[in-house]
Nucleic acid binder design. Structure first.
Lengths: 333, 333
DNA sequence: ATGAAAGCGCTAACAG
DNA sequence: CTGTTAGCGCTTTCAT
């Protein structure tokens, strides 16, 4: 069997039509506000709709050939506040444009990611927004598949929306300089786990130091290390470089930890982080950081996606780099 | 028009059938592994599927009467780390059981929430998991609508999964006592914005103080106040009650702010928060807190939901209270 | 072991 | 202004 039990059957157009004493077509017309209808019919149909508790069946609509108005959101995990923010803004932006979101937490696992792709294709998704890690997936190459990448995926032909990482690196470093730091170090992820554009933050940092005639000092750290490991790594940096009076740390998580450590150890090192998610700003308001324009990025991503959906693929391969800002720590009065 | 342009048309069962030289029925059988097929046919169909780049159309399947395997997740916002965690765990748990998630950020707006309900009904969602705020929505009363609430909604007939708020209040207060505090205050939300079960945290707190023969001191705070307002409110509490040496604050966000303020002001007040989301533990590892078992709650919610989906509504109205734990601050070596 | 045909709920030509 | 009819892609009797 498998057929929905009759008792659970939801009312259909026909049910409404019968109840209103008109044809299904007429009901459909009322629902879609198409053609010309008499006021009497309209109100009768509306009454019948309310009576029967009718809800249009989107599957049938989609099947007929319309858009599904379904967008896949593929991100590592909403557990990460940055992605939590991004997914939130994307969903909001898509909602007002009449799209709904299928949430796909890929855990940065390429097998999982591939499964989601199939799933989305099978569900007739009109498009996808991807902020997941894997660059090597062929499936993304499907022609005519509306797709936008957030800060990842360097494949030509896929438009990318990201924050201006280079400018972010510059801003962070300049802020540290302006605030008086002269021995400014930079902590970033180890190469293997670097986001494709992460090195640009570093480039911004190095540029500014060069302009000031200072020596860059870059320290790679394993970002996925457990707490103890991170503390140890930071400790060795701090102890091995007692001259440091400023640190640009390319990730708020690590930056907040470093901030706490410096406090506890009585080190006067000025620290600037990166990301500026809502959570960081609330939980660690005393951490100066570079804020990514998450809302803007979401809006731009949706703009580009909808343009693709409407058949305009001229955006293919374009990269949109959105402006970041420096947010100083909040002072407690 | 409206019809998908021919060039964008995705391959259908018929396309595969033609390419494999069999009937659509046979292809369907291969896909669903039903009936008896010859090995030759099977492999030929598989080849054709690969060749044509075929993906089964879920809309058609759903339309035919099967389940949509779609679950609606209605939560205020994934921007909040607690919901970010919860939504992540729910999605993961549902995924392994073959369900997909439609993400609905309701912003605690009841109009928005109602719209999502319609949307989910229209999209043939098999069920919903709701962690949003509004208790007064009639639509949730739909009979035979598989629905589980997380920590909200007190309507009889809807099963609720929550953490053991009463026990959490007890644990927090007992921890403070054990760590030496004797003048223990409690900060909670003002009544109007209280989550339905939030008062239970307070009850736990009051109980323990009573057992110890101490006087409870409860301070209500506007949780949605902006930074400055919250600082002011906390300040007036701290200044007005200099005898305090312990504070149980029913929300990590406020707790972390209070922690920072006490530090800056040199006040030796032991603070315990509530929630223990992944983000808090990473950003504010030095905040002792009561950890809600988010993963467990997600699993339980999905358990209950799937039971409802399979027609077993005996869980209606049941409340599942899951155990919380006290997590001390991480010490920096 | 395979195919033909009917129908899920909806929409859009085409009539009237 | 409204109804009739066909068909979207798929699954399943019912034949063969």
């Amino acid at each position: 069997m498998a057929r929905r039990k009759a008792t659970l059957r939801r009312p259909t157009l026909d049910d409404v039509a019968r109840s209103a004493g008109v044809s299904a077509t007429t009901v459909s017309r009322v629902l879609n506000n198409r053609g010309s209808l008499s006021d009497k019919t309209i109100s009768r149909v509306h009454a019948a709709i309310r009576e029967t508790g009718y809800h249009p069946n989107e599957s049938a609509r989609t099947l007929w050939g319309k858009q599904s108005r379904l967008i896949g959101l593929i991100f590592p995990t909403t557990q990460n506040p940055f992605y939590g923010d991004m997914v939130y803004e994307l969903e909001r932006e898509l909602y007002v444009r009449g799209y709904k979101c299928l949430l796909c937490n890929s855990s940065n696992d390429s097998a999982q990611e591939r499964q989601f792709l199939d799933l989305l294709l099978a569900n007739q998704a009109d498009g996808m927004i991807v902020g997941s890690h894997n660059t090597d997936i062929q499936t993304y190459q499907q022609p005519n598949l509306p797709l936008v990448a957030i800060d990842r995926i360097t494949t030509r032909s896929i438009p990318v929306v990201s924050s201006d990482n280079h400018q972010g690196g510059r801003l962070a470093t300049e802020a540290l300089w302006k605030r008086g730091a002269r021995r400014i170090g930079h902590i970033n992820s180890i190469e293997s786990q670097a986001a494709p554009y992460s090195y640009e933050r570093r480039r911004g940092y190095e540029e500014v130091l060069q302009e000031k005639g200072l020596e860059p000092k870059v320290f790679p750290i394993d970002w996925s290390a457990p707490y103890q490991g991170k503390v140890a790594a930071l400790d060795s940096i701090l102890e091995g470089n007692p001259e440091l009076d400023g640190l640009f740390i390319a990730d708020d998580m690590t930056a907040s930890l470093a901030l706490a450590m410096c406090r506890q150890r009585g080190l006067a090192i000025d620290i600037v982080g990166y990301d500026g998610s809502d959570a960081v700003r609330k939980f660690v308001p005393d951490l100066p950081t570079i804020v990514q324009p998450i809302k803007l990025m979401a809006r731009k991503a949706v703009d580009v996606l909808t343009r693709e959906i409407s058949g305009d693929f001229s955006v293919a391969g374009t990269r949109y780099s959105l402006p970041v800002t420096f947010l100083p720590e909040r002072t407690m009065p």
